[in-house]
Design a protein around this nucleic acid. Structure first.
Lengths: 196, 196
DNA sequence: TTTCTACTTGAGCGATCGCTCAAGACGGAA
DNA sequence: TTCCGTCTTGAGCGATCGCTCAAGTAGAAA
């Protein structure tokens, strides 16, 4: 007999992601989870193995959603650089209203996970590296399309985008100052690498 | 009778800061603290009131140390801009060996604290704002000394320094790639605001 | 030396943690 | 309709949490 589970895995992951994203891994109790996803402990542990196992799937679910959002942003703009800028503005300035946190869930996890949760920490680092690799391939695409000069250091620029995105999300949580963030995003694609 | 406490408050705060900085507020148990600072619960609660009260003093202690380190960096360099660069390199590249975490304790706390710990969150935001204000006054000093052009937007540049420092520390925790961080720091004081 | 008082001690309270498992519910096969 | 195997249920286990407080200790005053 195949899987006869009653729950919808995607909906469960959506709700669990919102909860973990808001409260973090440590501060989210299994009883919080039970209430949020309307499942009893036995079912949760049968489906996900442990709190860590669920969180691991949540991290992957979150990263996949971010990748989709980047793809949509790129599709909505005429240029690659414009698409990246749309993505930054969406993540930083538009998602803020109903998003569970101003921060990136991966950065938040990177911050709170200890060596004791080594597997989750490794997963987080890997997903962040994949994001940076995605930025890099987009920068390379922009160069090959003539949007950026041929001498552009794609690895450096992708790294700078990653640093800025995480830094700006932290700054937003610290100050709530969207105008200040918007001003910096405006300068983001105006660095010496691009403008000179 | 005045204070006859046997413990040295500064030494206790140093040890507690290292512990909280490494593990974070939630993941540090009061029993971890008891062991690290060699005090029994009764004494700790008499001296600091609660785990939150101790953490509050730890946040202030950490921020004061960062301010001192910035002052030392500025004193060790010929120019203000050079002093800021020394500070960035010290925090990002030199402290990493024995520092409890690659991250800024304030950014880490900003990330894990919830509205349920509102007072600690407010304290964290205030200390971060004070850091940005310190950056700004140094940028203004650099302008008045002729190190930066007079049209420099000091508020914007200070904000960018804050964003970059937090972002770079996250990046260091994500990748451990000091060479990559060093490369970005090299470009930091080479932005359009400065070079044009 | 005696007294006073501030400080320290550590057993342990009530709450909550992540998680288990025996019992029940339910859908498909025969 | 009966049977079988999977999924669900929820009481509750052992561990750990932040914290309290009655009893003990030690230094200053008299």
């Amino acid at each position: 007999m195949a899987n006869t589970a009653k729950f919808n895995r995607r909906q469960v992951l959506e709700k669990a992601t919102r909860l973990f994203w808001q409260k973090g891994f440590h501060a989210t109790s299994t009883r919080d989870i039970q209430q949020a996803i309307d499942m009893r402990p036995g079912s949760i542990y049968a489906a996900f193995g442990s709190k860590s196992g669920l969180f691991r799937e949540v991290l992957q679910f979150y990263a996949a959603n971010m990748t989709e959002q980047l793809a949509r942003s790129l599709a909505a703009a005429d240029t690659v650089v414009g698409g990246l800028q749309v993505f930054f503005r969406r993540v930083l300035l538009e998602g803020g209203d109903d998003a569970p946190s101003e921060l990136c869930l991966l950065a938040k996890s990177l911050s709170e996970l200890d060596e004791e949760e080594g597997e989750l920490l490794r997963e987080t680092r890997q997903l962040l590296a994949a994001t940076e690799a995605e930025f890099r391939s987009q920068v390379e695409r922009a160069v090959s399309r003539g949007e950026l000069p041929t001498h552009t250091d794609a690895a450096l620029l992708a790294r700078q985008l990653q640093v800025q995105l995480i830094g700006l999300r932290s700054y937003l949580r610290a100050t709530g100052n969207r105008a200040a963030v918007n001003e910096i995003v405006g300068h983001l694609f105006d660095t010496p690498e691009i403008s000179q």
